[in-house]
């Protein structure tokens, strides 16, 4: 296995392939509860789609030329990736760091804080991928997918999951209790969820707010995913990907810096 040096300039994360062991540990645990977990992955978005799509969609009618259900499906794929990755990197990772001391055991083995953080964030991204894949299947079965391009949503979701996993890991790194996460939900995630074009198009908002939404990553994920789901091609993909990847890398870097100070001081 590749053993990266213990320190690097600017405190950049020293990445090694050993992070895979952390990712696989979480996969093993997930497999034990795979059935209920997958059931939830399918069930919850199905309920959302049906309840909001039919109930709400009748009132709303079409958005542009899209039936509301179709519009909503691509939004929920993105918001589900955000929620799933964030929950995993907040509550589950924090539990493994503090209550279960799972990370402590890993750090006694030849793993570093950077390996653990990368393994956890990759796992959060994987869970985002699993849940979004389930929604994609549901959407396809309901006839809400417009073409084969929808399959390209999956790598975008993986990046989105990594991005939100890394952002959540920063919060986990500074958090002293579970309660602290509520600030993140209230001040960051909920506004982002409501203002990123998941439930309604951004052009319904005042222009300043709509532009502001693009300072945060979720709107960029939606901008790529929605055209792909309709069987078309998104525009400005490079910029959207750069924002997602930028958030991912900066947050990963910040998370490892803070975690190293917390766990290795």
């Amino acid at each position: 296995m590749n053993d990266a040096p213990a320190t690097s300039p600017l405190g950049m994360p020293a990445v090694s392939t050993r992070f895979i062991a952390v990712w696989r540990r979480n996969l093993r645990v997930w497999r034990k509860l795979m059935l209920p977990s997958i059931f939830g992955n399918f069930g919850e978005p199905l309920l959302y789609l049906l309840a909001l799509g039919y109930g709400f969609g009748r009132l709303v009618g079409d958005i542009g030329e899209l039936p509301y259900m179709v519009f909503l499906a691509s939004g929920i794929i993105c918001s589900s990736a955000m929620n799933t990755a964030s929950f995993e990197a907040l509550y589950s990772a924090y539990t493994r760091m503090t209550v279960q001391r799972t990370w402590g055991a890993m750090l006694d083995a030849p793993l570093t804080v950077d390996d653990v953080a990368l393994g956890e964030i990759s796992w959060a991204a994987t869970k985002a991928l699993i849940s979004s894949s389930a929604i994609l299947v549901v959407a396809a079965l309901l006839g809400l997918v417009g073409g084969w391009q929808a399959i390209l949503v999956l790598p975008v979701i993986l990046l989105t999951g990594f991005c939100f996993g890394a952002c959540a890991m920063v919060i986990t790194a500074v958090s002293r209790s579970y309660d602290f996460f509520l600030y993140y939900f209230t001040l960051v995630m909920t506004p982002m969820l409501l203002l990123s074009g998941v439930f309604f198009p951004l052009d319904q908002l005042p222009p300043l707010v709509a532009q502001g939404a693009f300072l945060l990553p979720l709107a960029h994920a939606v901008e790529i995913v929605r055209p792909l789901m309709l069987g078309g091609w998104p525009s400005g993909v490079a910029l959207h990907l750069i924002v997602l990847a930028g958030y991912a890398l900066v947050a990963f870097w910040a998370a490892t810096l803070i975690l190293r100070r917390r766990l290795m001081s």
Partner: peptide, 13 residues
């Protein structure tokens, strides 16, 4: 090999 002061066996396994 490390035996820590407080047990940190993995409760998920």
């Amino acid at each position: 090999g490390v035996v820590p002061q407080m047990d940190n066996l993995d409760p998920d396994f």
